[in-house]
Every structure is written in structure tokens, then in C-alpha cells.
């Protein structure tokens, strides 16, 4: 992988760097338990990944609840990204050996008349920490995906500050 900036003496470019990054994205998107090039997914790892689907479902539900409670917050971009993250997690979990977890918990309720933005930020922060912990216990493309989603939610926290 070329460095962030091309060395002044080399011919590599940022485009090459981004192309290398895109290759990793394809690796993540195409990861399956049966790929000959990737390590087998343990049942424990697959269960943990399925568990993170439920965590992300709670994030999507929290954005919906916050939008209902305070439409002026203009959360559409962040909510859309949270849904993208959920879709990618579901796809990765369904390609593992375990069945994706189904969320049985009630959707979160935003505080009526309270500080909805702060409440939402706390929900996002909790999910980011959960994904980060799960990332450390995964390997390969699943660790990369969970780590990236955890970081994305850290960015949401910053945007909601």
C-alpha cells in the first residue's frame, strides 16, 4: 500500500493509494466463510458479529426516535450512514456460519422534552464502544469492518457534539 502522500522521489500517487484502499473494501464486501483465501470463521466469531447487528439496529432505531422527537435536528445524513452500516453488517453476518441475531429489545425512546441531541450522542457512543470491543475479538475482514463502523460512529459523536 503506498503511503498517504507519494514520496517525492517515487511515482506512486494518491490515486494508487485510494485504489489499494478500494481493494480492501472489496475484500470486506466479498468476505465469506468459505473463501479459500480467508481464514475459517469460528462459531464464536460469527456469533459475536451477529450480536453487533443488534447493536447497530439500536443505532438506526435511535436516529429514527430522535428525528421523531426533534425533526429540527436534521439527522438525515447521519441516519442514512447508520443504515448503510447496518446493511453491511447484516451482509457480513449472513455470510458467516451463524444466523444473524434478531433484535428482541424494544426500540429506544428519545427523552420527551429533553435534550434529544445529547441522548442520541450517548446512544451512538455506546454502540461505537461495543463495536470497538467486538472488533478486537474478531480477525481479518470482520475486524476491519467492525473497526471502521466503530470509527464512523465516533465521527457521528463528534458531529453531534
Amino acid at each position: 500500500m503506498p503511503p498517504v502522500l507519494a514520496p517525492a522521489t517515487a511515482g506512486s500517487t494518491r490515486r494508487a493509494f485510494l485504489a489499494a484502499s478500494a481493494g480492501l473494501a472489496l475484500l470486506v464486501a466479498g468476505c465469506t466463510a468459505g473463501s479459500p483465501e480467508t481464514p475459517a470463521v469460528s462459531t464464536e466469531e460469527a456469533d459475536r458479529l451477529a450480536g453487533q447487528v443488534a447493536v447497530q439496529e439500536a443505532v438506526v432505531a435511535a436516529y429514527a426516535a430522535a428525528t421523531t422527537a426533534d425533526p429540527a435536528l436534521a439527522l438525515s445524513d447521519l441516519a442514512a450512514q447508520a443504515t448503510e452500516q447496518l446493511d453491511r453488517l447484516r451482509a457480513a453476518a449472513s455470510s458467516s456460519t451463524a444466523s444473524p441475531a434478531t433484535s428482541s429489545s424494544a426500540p429506544p425512546a428519545a427523552p420527551a422534552g429533553g435534550d434529544v441531541r445529547t441522548w442520541l450522542r450517548e446512544q451512538v457512543a455506546t454502540a461505537a464502544s461495543a463495536h470497538a470491543r467486538a472488533c478486537a475479538r474478531q480477525t481479518g475482514a470482520r475486524a476491519a469492518l467492525l473497526g471502521s463502523i466503530a470509527a464512523g460512529l465516533r465521527g457521528h459523536e463528534a458531529a453531534l457534539a
Partner: peptide
Amino acid sequence: RIPVTDAFPGL
């Protein structure tokens, strides 16, 4: 830049 966040940083 809009949006200011990235759903998948680094991917």
C-alpha cells in the same frame, strides 16, 4: 465538505 462524516472510515 458534506457530509462531514464517513460511514466507513478507511474502507
